[in-house]
């Protein structure tokens, strides 16, 4: 199993080969995560590229006593994607990019399928009402805000906030 913590520590010491190893191991998956959120390949590639630059720049801040290296890496990627989304890059898609657009429901169905049975998160998500589960997945997987979820499911903002708050509380209880 890849020792990402060691690779990040090597990066902090200036070892580019270690950064390359992280890219070879996780870059494809990271591009998949970015594509689900940003929906455009060019933007998703930019997000992955910039994430690796940030990983390099911040590698010396990583401390294995405080968290898992893989989670640290994906947090950098997700924050990058969220920042791009909040800058409304999603709204500037051109016509040809629409071809790459996939329906929210397709992405969420595939996520659910691939989550597989037996995992803790899957088991606990399954216990949630469908609307709470969808709201949690739309936020995490698609990067939607409360307002965007409200608009897409056609429910009042207050209801969506309540579903998410209660859904997250139920998940914590189930996962603890």
């Amino acid at each position: 199993m890849t020792d990402y913590a060691q690779l990040l520590e090597n990066c902090a010491g200036g070892d580019r080969a270690s950064l390359r190893t992280v890219m070879d191991a996780e870059g494809g998956r990271m591009l998949g995560v970015a594509l689900r959120m940003l929906r455009r390949r060019d933007l998703a590639e930019d997000a992955v590229q910039e994430s690796f630059v940030t990983i390099w720049r911040k590698a010396h801040q990583y401390d294995r006593n405080r968290g898992a290296a893989k989670a640290w890496i994906y947090t950098i990627l997700r924050n990058r994607c969220l920042t791009m989304l909040r800058q409304d890059t999603r709204e500037i898609a051109t016509e040809s990019d629409v071809l790459e657009m996939r329906q929210d429901s397709d992405i969420l169905s595939e996520t659910w399928e691939r989550l597989g049975e037996g995992g803790d998160l899957q088991r606990c998500l399954e216990r949630l009402d469908a609307k709470k589960r969808a709201a949690v997945l739309m936020a995490y997987v698609l990067g939607y805000t409360h307002g965007e979820i409200s608009g897409r499911v056609g429910a009042p903002l207050g209801s969506v906030k309540s579903w998410l708050r209660r859904g997250l509380a139920q998940l914590r209880e189930c996962l603890s």
Binding site: L31, G32, V33, G67, L121
Partner: peptide, 27 residues
């Protein structure tokens, strides 16, 4: 960290996409 790892299972569901050939050069 715990919360990130819990939800990180969802990142693992993303289908890996081929990186462009020049990605390492760009980085």
């Amino acid at each position: 960290d715990q919360a990130r790892k819990r939800f990180g299972e969802l990142d693992d569901t993303a289908r890996p996409e081929a990186l462009p050939d020049d990605m390492w050069a760009r980085i």
